[in-house]
Amino acid sequence: MSTAKFRLMIRAYLGTVAALVIAGVFLVSAAGKIRNPGAYRGFRTSVTDLTGLPPGPARLTAPAVIGAELLVVALVAIRSVTAPILALLLLTAFTVVLGRARTRATDRPCNCFFASTSPVGTRHVVRNIVLMLVGAAALALRTMPLAPGGWAMAALAAGPLVAVVVYWDTLADLFTPMAA
């Protein structure tokens, strides 16, 4: 195998891993919000609290966010170039909302993945910036399609990375000094 072909193959694997991380994160995020009526109400309340939208528009925004997250998953599944673009747009909007909430020093939780009691903080903004970098990598490293075995290997690599993102708060708590 030539060096050029090897580099192209590595780019394809890395781009596919990045796309699968984005899809996995958005899938867990959407599923966590719709898994039961209480989770959905908590997310809808978060939309109102974090965006400052009145309850009426928040009722429309919450399902639109979930629908957009599921659309990203579907677009990754069909290898559409629009998947990482839509993911980047969503992540940018989410990051702006979280950043604004952070500067207002709100004590409201994000409920980004599932019910949370952790108030929005810098860790949420950092998580989203990391996801934006992953989305950019998914877009930049799009090359040739992988064989089914390549997809399986990429999925195995993406799984633990999705778990790190989903449990970001818990992991951050492990490295945060406890108050005396």
Rank of each mutant, 00 (worst) to 15 (best):
S2E: 02
A4N: 05
A4Q: 13
A4L: 12
F6L: 13
R7I: 05
L8A: 14
L8Y: 01
M9E: 11
M9V: 07
I10Q: 12
I10G: 01
R11N: 08
L14T: 05
L14N: 02
T16L: 05
T16D: 08
V17R: 11
V21I: 15
A23Y: 12
V25R: 07
S29Q: 09
S29G: 15
A30M: 06
A31F: 10
A31T: 06
A31N: 03
I34W: 08
N36E: 06
N36R: 02
A39S: 15
Y40L: 09
S46T: 04
S46R: 06
S46P: 04
D49G: 03
L50Q: 00
T51E: 06
P54N: 07
P54I: 00
G56V: 15
A58Q: 10
R59P: 00
L60F: 14
L60C: 07
A62E: 10
V65D: 00
G67R: 05
A68C: 04
E69G: 04
L71A: 15
L71F: 08
R79W: 09
V81L: 10
L90P: 00
L90D: 00
T92R: 09
T92P: 03
A93S: 14
V96D: 04
V97K: 05
L98C: 03
R100K: 12
A101N: 01
R102E: 10
T103N: 05
A105N: 12
T106A: 11
D107R: 15
C110N: 07
F113E: 00
S116Q: 08
S116A: 13
P119T: 01
P119K: 03
G121N: 09
R123D: 02
R127C: 01
N128H: 12
G135Q: 02
A136F: 09
A136N: 02
L139Q: 05
R142Y: 12
R142D: 13
T143C: 06
M144P: 00
P148A: 10
G150R: 07
M153W: 15
M153K: 11
A154P: 08
A154N: 09
A155V: 07
A157C: 15
A158M: 11
G159I: 10
A163G: 08
V164C: 09
L174F: 14
F175D: 00
P177K: 09
